[in-house]
Design a protein around this nucleic acid. Structure first.
Length: 493
RNA sequence: GGCCCCAUGGUCAAGUGGACUAAGACACCGGUCUUUCAAGCCGGUAACCCGGGUUCGAAUCCCGGUGGGGUCACCA
């Protein structure tokens, strides 16, 4: 199915993909998928000063991780390429030449120093810092003089001095800009490299983009871009400016806000399903009470008309809650795949995994998943199933190891469990319940110290699940070890 | 400062003139279940920025304030 809809996400490879960019990419992706269109990835890498090596790869990795596959762009090709602006310089030069010969653009010989001085003066005088138009109607002599002095000109667009430019925004309606508030801005730098507004328009036009969906911070660029479409004679695409994602202090996302990059969330143990779901819900809602929405459901329901107008502050707590929901309800095999790197990182499993190890990890994950909100927590919750080197939680020691007769109780527990066969949940529980009854104690009096002895913790899955998972050898060994440890380290009170 | 956008609980967010005594979710607080902690379930606290208008009626429409945000580069 091809509806003719073409949208693009056009990041600049100056850093990693943060959640604001990811959300913009997501909305473009959703719009394309919801409307049978094509989603295109384009790299806006004309600022060679700020360009960062590895940034493109990082962005690509993050998009793929989130599941936002593009139909055209780096790595997949397409008939409108190339998809990196640095590889399209001849296209921009050609289009700029058209504007120059048509008299719609002109050469500007002002130096950056002159322009800075103009701006400073305007600022002091309380005027808007607009270009003063010095080169708009430069005389032939002055021009010759500048050329002779070897000054390389930049190219400016001749902006109408009156009238209005109206942005018909799919989310905000008509937004009117007075042309008089716009100035003749630079479209080609003196180096022959296009500026953002120009390259963006040329690419969107020549790549057949039908809907420009981008963050609201670009809204004030749009009238400038519309003027270029008109000058070049290209039809206008539809525009949609989606609300921004703000940091908890209500400011635009930046490095000082800490972990806001997709890769950082990934490293902290967030799963792509959850981030996808959360980001979709930031600025958009299905219109009813649903919160947990999978990929297909979001694609089915997404519409720009339902996108809100105001900026949203992201809330890690809700993301974390969603993440926990996904961790406890996704397919176990999928969870395994996602959790494996974290388990390796935590030293629970090695690089090569036998079928039996895999089976065991699967069962462990099943036991601890509902208690974990991130994969990091998950690996941590799973650790004592793989490692014997845990220490007893000091708080727990104080609470359940210091009572009178705990070592003896643990040894009795050990004796009760030793003959159990098969060593499963219900048989071990029966053995323990019998002991509890025989001793006339409460369940907790035996169960709590046992848990601490077996796991080092006071929290975790049901005790008999833990026991069955650990198996007889490790259970008995850990009970012995704890009894001895208590006798050595604790003075009964 | 100029221009532009926006405005429902702490946060996300439903709501498009009467069904609003304003959903739902996160967070928070209580209860319940349980050997623990989660999860689950039940319940609670908490919002229409202010002022004018229009209307029989305004969270919803209009105007003005206020507040927040964005943007004003040979950055993107």
């Amino acid at each position: 199915m091809n509806s003719g809809v073409r949208v693009r996400f056009a990041p600049s490879p100056t850093g990693s993909l943060h959640i604001g960019g990811a959300r913009t990419a997501l909305f473009n992706y959703l719009f394309a998928r919801a409307n049978g269109g094509r989603f295109i990835l384009r790299l806006e890498d004309t600022d060679f000063e700020r360009r960062l090596t590895g940034a493109e790869e990082g962005i690509v990795r993050s998009l793929r991780w989130l599941g936002l596959d593009w139909d055209e762009g780096p790595g997949v090709g397409g008939e409108y390429g190339p998809y990196r602006q640095s590889e399209r310089l001849d296209v921009y030069r050609g289009e700029a030449g058209r504007l120059l010969t048509a008299g719609l653009a002109y050469r500007c010989y002002c130096t950056p120093e002159e322009l800075a001085a103009d701006r400073e003066e305007a600022r002091r005088a309380g005027r808007a810092p607009r270009y003063n138009g010095r080169c708009r109607s430069i005389s032939a002599e002055d021009k010759a003089e500048k050329e002779a002095a070897g000054i390389k000109p930049a190219l400016r667009l001749r902006v109408p001095e009156s009238g209005q430019t109206v942005v018909e925004d799919l989310i905000r309606g008509s937004v009117v800009f007075e042309n008089a508030t716009l100035d003749d801005y630079i479209i080609m730098k003196s180096t022959g490299v296009p500026t953002y507004n120009f390259a963006c328009v040329v690419d969107d036009a020549t790549m057949g983009i039908t809907h420009v969906i981008r963050a609201e911070e670009h809204l004030s660029n749009t009238p400038k871009q519309i003027l270029i479409y008109k000058a070049l004679g290209y039809p206008l695409p539809a525009f949609a400016h989606v609300p921004m994602i703000l940091a908890p202090d209500r400011a635009k996302l930046s490095k000082r806000h800490g972990a806001t990059g997709v890769e950082e969330f990934q490293a902290q143990g967030y799963v792509p399903e959850a981030l996808f779901n959360y980001l979709a819900l930031l600025g958009w809602s299905p219109g009813d009470e649903r919160e947990l929405l999978g990929h297909d459901e979001v694609v089915r329901e997404f519409s720009l008309a339902a996108v809100s107008k105001h900026a949203a502050i992201y809330d890690v707590q809700k993301l974390t809650w969603l993440n926990g929901q996904y961790i406890s309800s996704m397919g176990l095999e999928r969870l395994y795949d996602l959790a494996l790197p974290f388990c390796r990182e935590a030293g629970l499993v090695g690089a090569n995994i036998t079928a039996a190890e895999r089976e065991y990890l699967l069962r462990v994950l099943e036991a601890v998943r509902s208690r974990s909100r991130t994969l990091l927590e998950l690996a941590d919750m799973a650790s004592y199933f793989f490692r014997d080197d845990f220490v007893y939680d000091p708080k727990g020691v104080k609470k359940v190891f210091t009572a009178q007769g705990v070592p003896e109780l643990l040894r009795e527990g050990r004796e009760a469990l030793a003959p159990v066969e098969p060593f499963d949940v219900s048989n071990t529980e029966t053995a323990y319940r019998d002991l509890i009854e025989k001793r006339g104690i409460s369940g907790g009096e035996l169960i709590h110290p046992t848990r601490l002895a077996l796991t080092g913790r006071t929290v975790g899955p049901g005790l008999f699940d833990v026991i069955a998972l650990l198996g007889k050898n490790r259970t008995l060994e850990r009970l012995d070890r704890a009894a001895a440890w208590i006798e050595k380290n604790i003075t009964p009170k």
